[in-house]
Amino acid sequence: MNLEIKDLNVSVKDKKILNNFNLKINTGEIHAIMGPNGTGKSTLSKVILGDKNYTIEKGDILVDNESILSLETYERARKGIFLCYQNPISIDGITNSEFIRTALNEQNEKKVGLYEFIKSMEKNIDSLKMQPDMMHRNLNQGFSGGERKKNEVLQIKMLKPKFIIFDELDSGLDVDSLKIVCDNIKEYLQEYPNTSVLLITHYTRILDYLKPQYVHMMKNGEIVESGDYTLAKNIEKYGFDKTFFLGDDKNDE
C-alpha cells in the first residue's frame, strides 16, 4: 500500500499540531519517525486513521493515490490501515477472541469459520509466547504492558493489514518480549512483503530489529530532517536538538 501525506496541517482546539507535514511511504517500505515528546508523532498516527478529535485545516492523505479524508475510521481500517497503539484500551465483558473475530468478520466479506479461526489464534498466540488463556480473557483486561503490546501484534497477524503504524511499540516491553514481538513482525513482513510500515519511536533499539530504510526526525509538527538508519544513530548519539543543529556537519566528526 502507498500512503502519501501532502502539506498536512492539523490542529486540536486551535492549537496547531502538524505543520505542512509531508511524507510518502511506498509499498513495502519501512519508515521511522523519531522526535521529542509532544512533537505530534502520535497525533499523526491518529489523524491517518481519522480521529475526529483533530481538525484537518489543509492538505491531504492519499492511499494508493486516492484521498481517504472523507472516509470514516472503520473504512480506513478496512482499506488495510492498522494502528498498533501505545496504550491499547481494555474492555470488560468482551473476550479477546470475540473481539478479533468480530473485527475479522467486519473486514472480510466471507465470515471466517470458527475452527479455522481458533486454529489460527492458537498458532499466533503460541508464536508470540502469550498465555493460551489470553484468547478467552477479556480484551486487555488485567494484561501487563507487554501482554497488551503482544495482543496488538496478535491482531496484526489475524487481521493482516497492508499498512501498519507502530506507535511506541517498544514502550512497556522488556528485552525478551521486544525480541519476540519484533521476530513476529519480521515474519509477518516476510510473508506479506507488500506491507508498508511507519514506526514511531523515541529510541533506536526497535530500529535495530526492524531496520527501516528511511528515518525522519520530527520537530514542532513537521519533518525537519530525513535520512537512512545513520540519522537514527546520530539522534541516539547527539540527541534531537544537536542532531538538528549540526545538520550534515555531524558526519564530519
Partner: peptide
C-alpha cells in the same frame, strides 16, 4: 471516545460497536 476510536480502528462499524459495548456492560467483570 477512546473506546469508540479503538474499536472503529479495527474496522468495526458503529452499530456493531454498540452491540459489543452492550455485551461488555451486561457481562462486565
Amino acid at each position: 471516545n477512546d473506546t469508540m476510536f479503538y474499536l472503529e480502528s479495527r474496522g468495526i462499524k458503529e452499530e456493531n460497536i454498540k452491540r459489543l459495548i452492550y455485551q461488555s456492560i451486561m457481562l462486565g467483570k
